[in-house]
């Protein structure tokens, strides 16, 4: 992983990204100013919130049980709260 202390001689040539999957190392959750809150009692585990999430931040298990949010990845866009038919997700200020 590169960092901005590295000089021209250390950095990979021409900015080539030499390892795949490094987006996981970027905590986009830091960009968030509103966070989604899971209201478990309203949730029907319908999984409608999973597909629209642009950050793949809805955590669920193999039995399609909604478990909450990956706050390292979630940017707080609120799409999940919009699509939830059961008011099981609300947005709160950070």
């Amino acid at each position: 992983m590169i960092n901005d202390k590295m000089g021209a001689k250390e950095l990979p040539m021409a900015g080539i990204i030499l390892k795949d999957g490094n987006s996981e190392q970027v905590k986009t959750g830091e960009w968030r100013n509103q966070k989604p809150i899971h209201i478990l009692e309203n949730c029907k585990h319908c999984m409608l919130c999973v597909m629209p999430c642009p950050d793949n931040a809805i955590i669920h298990d193999e039995d399609d049980k909604m478990l909450g949010f990956d706050y390292d990845a979630c940017k707080g866009c609120g799409v999940c709260a919009k699509v939830c038919p059961f008011k099981a997700i609300t947005m709160e200020n950070e």
Binding site: I2, D4, L11, A14, G15, I16, I17, L18, K19, D20
Partner: peptide
């Protein structure tokens, strides 16, 4: 690998 990515002020 990825080549020719966005490269801003830091790099």
């Amino acid at each position: 690998i990825s080549m020719g990515p966005l490269d801003l002020q830091n790099y």
